[in-house]
Design a protein around this nucleic acid. Structure first.
Ligand SMILES: [Mn+2]
Ligand SMILES: [Mn+2]
Ligand SMILES: [Zn+2]
Ligand SMILES: [Zn+2]
Lengths: 148, 148
DNA sequence: ATATCAAATTGTAATTAATACAATTTAATA
DNA sequence: TATTAAATTGTATTAATTACAATTTGATAT
């Protein structure tokens, strides 16, 4: 969550033409770190920007990704997800509530891969299971905690 | 690569009805550890079994997966990939030649996730970059090595 | 060996994420 | 303010996956 100028700066620094659509998408991703899909981003932004095209969302996300400003996750099966956080981290997908949680750990395996002779550009660490919240609820300890 | 009886045994052990289609799919996955897509499996099996339906391939893969006989990979963006190898291992996707290589290492991070309170059922470790073969070719050391 | 029947297969249609493309608009520069 | 390359829009298309009804078949009991 930052001032709009912050997103303008990010775009200018990458020599990306500054448009309202791109600012909106960046702002959305920065304030929704839940790894949304293109569809979710589109539907949300369309509320306050009815003329927005889904193609623009896809195009903008591609541009941002190619410039390393955002990253993508292939953790779910049918759609790509987007992440404003680019620092290497892991993810946990809860198969019950569906949320994708950031896990701030690094990967100690990169060096091993390099020893095989491959050049590693990206590291993706995903875990799937049941999150703490869902486990607690399943045990009857319903503390009426929100899952959104 | 095993005798057909082996795949029959696998199905029977899982209380899965034995059909020629399921045997064929299992055999294909066992002898093609390249993490094929449903489409690739379908096209290859259709050659010797022209009546095969793509729906059957999807259904069978789902059944096999639900019984833990095969696993799935979401490493590429547009399609699911299937793996006969269920023992926990990592993967490396070469962005040049497209092949997905098995990396036989384990994940030292599982315990950390458990400490967060989540229950971990699946571990997915993916790396992306340029594989050794492609790197060597790029350096002009073309030893005419096959990439298939 | 044969009849039975739930389950599997098939073929087609529907859904959905993503991409292609031509017309229009706009951000950046002069 | 005029210019222009790039971005946006809307629509059409592609491609992976799922839904579903009709048909076939594997396993069981007779
Ligand atoms: Mn994240
Ligand atoms: Mn594998
Ligand atoms: Zn959960
Ligand atoms: Zn390669």
């Amino acid at each position: 969550m930052s001032t709009l100028d912050h997103y303008v700066e990010i775009l200018k620094k990458g020599n990306i033409k500054v448009t309202q659509q791109r600012i909106d998408i960046l702002k959305y991703l920065d304030s929704h770190l839940s790894h949304p899909t293109a569809e979710e981003i589109f539907l949300s932004l369309k509320k306050t920007h009815p003329a927005l095209s889904k193609t623009t969302v896809y195009n903008s996300l591609d541009v941002l990704r190619k410039h390393g400003i955002i990253t993508t996750l292939t953790i779910t099966e049918n759609e790509l997800r987007y992440d404003f956080k680019t620092k290497m981290h892991h993810h946990f997908l809860c198969k019950k509530c569906g949320q994708i949680i950031d896990i701030d750990i690094s990967c100690p395996n990169i060096e091993k891969i390099s020893k095989f002779g491959h050049r590693v550009d990206e590291v993706h660490g995903y875990f799937k299971g049941i999150c703490k919240n869902c486990l607690d609820q399943g045990r009857g300890k319903n503390k009426s905690q929100s899952l959104t």
